[in-house]
Amino acid sequence: MSVLVFVEGLNGEIKKSSLEAASYGSQVAQAMGTTATAVAIGEVHEEALAKLGEQGISKVLYDADDRLKQFVADAYVKVIATAAQQESAKVLVFSNSNIGAAVGSKLAVRLNGSLATNVTELPKIDGGNFTVTRGVFSGKAFADVNLTSDVKIIAVKKNSTDIISNGGSTATVEKLSADLAESDFAAAPKETVMQDTGGGVLLPEAEIVVSGGRGMKGPENWHLIEELAKELGAATACSKPVSDIGWRPHHEHVGQTGITVSPNLYIAAGISGAIQHLAGVNSSKVIVVINKDPEAPFFKAADYGIVGDALEVLPKLIEAAKALDK
């Protein structure tokens, strides 16, 4: 019996959201009196894998099959299922990413397990009950859910778990080889196109997000959003109207029908805060709203606010951010 954590790589390193999943998994393992093993697929540096020891992982199983460099759901499922069987895993932990939740859902069917996605807290394990808390109603509530099957699969919401750091601990890295067939790659992508973040931060992984709405008055003013984001090490985002009229690409749209983010800090400039927008950002830890309309509904959800024109306020923030000791 053990806990198995699936970790995702990006440019050879482990994604922050996967370090969170690893930290979550090792804490569950400790509560259950067992150890946590990670499974990694694709292109990740071996040193990065060994460093998962800092998050409490004792062993990493690594499948370096070249065909797995890009995400192929059926093949990934087979590799993780192989690892789960080898480790007799009773709890599987993923990041609640498009990849993690997809693979978790398929494994729930294959392993006949209970699945909870969007999980925000460590489980309560009490006798026979294994209860997790997950976000529901688009951030307006939480639900406690009993996972009733023998195998439990958890996809952890991003930025809801602190990353543990046992400095210096290393995990042993072992090769894993699943028996992959051609048919496992039938739905392999023909093409993968990564966004050019211009060396900036990827929105779904960001700890700080600077977001603009129609109050920015036009795409020509977006350099203010980008500059502040750069100074703060933040990702940039926008409201739905802004992506609808084509000022910004759709993948930057946060809100009910866009991306849901839960950063430590969300700065909204010139966004009124329609309920659809709030649904995508309401689990951010600290919200800053800059809007010239003091009646903008977003102020009700904000921790800090500035009533003023975003185009005049942002340059002051950029200046102050430049003056910070980094």
């Binding site: 699945l115 209860t131 307006k140 509530a141 939480f142 639900a143 859910v145 009733t148 309401n282 606010g305």
Partner: peptide, 18 residues
């Protein structure tokens, strides 16, 4: 395979600091 047992709401924000 799961059972919803209880719901809660997030803590209210203490109000905006302007």
């Amino acid at each position: 395979k799961s059972e919803y047992v209880n719901y809660s709401k997030p803590e209210k924000k203490s109000g905006v600091k302007l």
